[in-house]
Amino acid sequence: MKKVWFITGCSTGFGRSLATEVLAKGYYVVVTARKTADIEDLVKSYPDTAIAVQLDVTKQNEIEQAVTITIERFGQIDVLINNAGIGYFAAVEESEEAEVRKMFEINVFGLAKVIQAVLPYMRKRRSGHILNIASIGGLRSFPGVGFYNATKYAVDGLSEALYKEVAPLGINVTIIAPSGFRTDWAGRSAKNTTVKIEDYATTAWKNMGDIRGYSGSQPGDPVRAAKAMIQITETEHPPLRLLLGAAALRGARAKLAELQQDFDTWATVTEGADFPKEEA
Rank of each mutant, 00 (worst) to 15 (best):
88 Y>R: 12
65 Q>N: 06
72 E>M: 02
116 Q>T: 06
85 G>K: 02
171 I>W: 01
121 Y>H: 11
86 I>L: 14
123 R>C: 07
130 I>R: 06
151 T>V: 15
183 T>H: 03
182 R>Q: 14
103 M>H: 10
76 Q>N: 11
77 I>H: 10
182 R>Y: 01
80 L>F: 08
107 N>K: 08
106 I>E: 11
179 S>G: 14
93 E>L: 10
87 G>Y: 09
96 E>F: 13
176 I>V: 14
154 A>S: 07
153 Y>G: 02
189 S>K: 14
177 A>N: 07
151 T>N: 09
131 L>I: 08
108 V>S: 08
167 A>K: 13
115 I>W: 00
188 R>T: 05
188 R>I: 07
154 A>M: 11
163 Y>M: 08
98 A>E: 07
116 Q>P: 06
167 A>L: 13
73 R>H: 12
139 L>A: 13
118 V>S: 05
95 S>C: 10
175 I>N: 03
123 R>E: 04
74 F>K: 11
71 I>H: 08
103 M>V: 06
166 V>C: 09
67 V>N: 01
181 F>D: 04
160 E>A: 15
165 E>T: 04
147 F>G: 14
115 I>E: 01
73 R>K: 11
121 Y>Q: 05
158 L>K: 03
110 G>I: 02
66 A>F: 05
130 I>D: 10
189 S>R: 15
171 I>N: 07
111 L>G: 00
74 F>I: 03
85 G>C: 10
153 Y>P: 01
180 G>F: 09
151 T>F: 09
101 R>P: 04
170 G>L: 13
148 Y>P: 01
82 N>I: 00
125 R>A: 14
101 R>D: 07
145 V>E: 08
188 R>G: 09
118 V>C: 05
157 G>R: 00
186 A>R: 07
99 E>P: 15
101 R>V: 09
87 G>T: 09
98 A>I: 14
181 F>N: 11
157 G>H: 00
88 Y>K: 12
100 V>M: 04
109 F>H: 02
147 F>C: 15
115 I>P: 02
88 Y>A: 15
167 A>F: 04
162 L>H: 02
160 E>D: 09
79 V>S: 13
80 L>V: 07
113 K>D: 02
67 V>M: 02
137 G>R: 05
128 G>V: 12
82 N>D: 09
166 V>D: 10
177 A>I: 01
174 T>Q: 10
170 G>V: 08
157 G>K: 00
158 L>T: 00
156 D>I: 01
180 G>E: 11
155 V>G: 10
89 F>N: 08
73 R>I: 05
169 L>G: 03
151 T>A: 13
80 L>R: 00
190 A>H: 03
70 T>R: 03
124 K>N: 05
76 Q>E: 13
103 M>K: 11
90 A>D: 08
143 P>K: 03
100 V>P: 15
150 A>S: 11
168 P>T: 12
109 F>W: 14
74 F>Q: 10
88 Y>N: 15
104 F>P: 02
90 A>W: 02
129 H>W: 12
140 R>K: 13
143 P>T: 12
182 R>T: 09
145 V>Q: 12
160 E>M: 11
75 G>D: 12
158 L>E: 00
80 L>C: 14
173 V>L: 07
152 K>E: 00
78 D>S: 11
118 V>D: 00
109 F>K: 04
91 A>L: 14
120 P>G: 07
187 G>K: 08
168 P>L: 01
166 V>Y: 03
84 A>H: 06
128 G>L: 13
84 A>P: 12
121 Y>T: 15
146 G>K: 14
66 A>K: 02
105 E>C: 02
132 N>Y: 07
